[in-house]
């Protein structure tokens, strides 16, 4: 132990920056995780002591998780058939709904952000729709789309599009006028102005909106499947719940949580990469 610590310190003196960064990262990682660990430990204790069927100990949930969602052959990445059928169904709905929300949200957001007149005309409409709780739209969506994946796609879309749109509009309206002036003096064509200047310049806020919408879309993916559907993760939860299989229900939640974490991590990677310029110039300015 001691020798290792020493060598670490030596390493730190040799490359102080990297070591310091690594140390800080580990520390903040631990800082993020200890709360989770505490919650899990308390959960385990509560589950064991109470003997409640509704809140089983986390260890049993994880064991059940392995039984239900894992255990497939290597060719299936060790994931079960149920995983492949339900997760792909749900995620494909999510991808279609959220993808559409991103395209439409950014498109309309740019228009709203560029035109004061349009923003004044449609701003209240956007904010009105954004304020409607999406679960209220569930029966309407079923009326329009019936018992089909399009219903789920529509709800995911409708739930995530507004936050993308509003963030994009704010971001676009707030683009540094110096960049716009610079682009104007370069006499760039309109499409270059929008695709290579305005959208990238507004990217920090657009991406912030996308990240929020990612969470909303994921939750709506599950909620929309609690009802008027015959497959998907949400459906599995309903079935487990109505047959009092609480372990199955909790492992489905664990799976959804993991999917959320993976999607968020992937998004974070992309975001960091796309916004390198912003971070560096920010540091430079300090």
């Amino acid at each position: 132990m001691t020798s290792r610590t020493t060598s670490r310190i030596t390493g730190a003196t040799m490359r102080p920056n990297r070591a310091a960064i690594a140390l800080r990262r580990t520390a903040s990682g631990v800082g993020n995780l200890w709360l989770l660990a505490l919650v899990l430990v308390l959960w385990e204790i509560y589950g064991r002591v109470s003997g409640s069927l509704f809140v089983p100990p986390i260890s049993r949930i994880l064991q059940n998780f392995g039984d239900v969602w894992l255990g497939g052959p290597a060719s299936h990445l060790f994931l079960s058939d149920l995983f492949w059928s339900e997760v792909t169904t749900s995620l494909s709905r999510f991808a279609r709904g959220w993808g559409l929300a991103v395209v439409v949200g950014i498109g309309c957001g740019v228009v709203l952000g560029r035109s004061r007149v349009i923003a004044q005309m449609y701003g209240p409409v956007v904010r009105f729709f954004a304020a409607i709780p999406n679960t209220v739209l569930l029966p309407i969506a079923v009326q329009i789309f019936g018992v089909a994946s399009n219903m789920n796609v529509f709800l995911i879309f409708l739930g995530s599009v507004w936050v993308v749109m509003i963030n994009t509009a704010d971001g676009v309206a707030g683009v540094d006028p110096m960049w716009l002036r610079s682009a104007r003096s370069l006499r760039v064509p309109r499409w270059v102005l929008y695709l290579r200047v305005i959208v990238p310049a507004a990217a920090p806020q657009i991406l912030a909106g996308l990240r929020v919408s990612l969470g909303i879309g994921l939750i709506l993916m599950v909620i929309s499947e609690l009802y008027a559907t015959t497959e998907g993760l949400g459906f599995q939860i309903v079935v487990a719940q109505s047959s009092f299989r609480y372990l199955d229900m909790w492992s489905a939640f664990v799976l959804i949580g993991l999917i959320g974490i993976v999607l968020n991590l992937a998004f974070g990677r992309i975001e960091t990469r796309l916004l390198r310029w912003q971070r560096r110039s920010g540091l430079d300015a300090l």
């Binding site: 110096m178 960049w179 002036r181 610079s182 290579r196 990238p200 310029w277 912003q278 430079d284 300015a285």
Partner: peptide, 12 residues
């Protein structure tokens, strides 16, 4: 322009 950081496009 005077302010290069606001006239160059840093994302390019």
């Amino acid at each position: 322009f005077q302010d290069y950081s606001r006239s160059l496009f840093p994302w390019m």
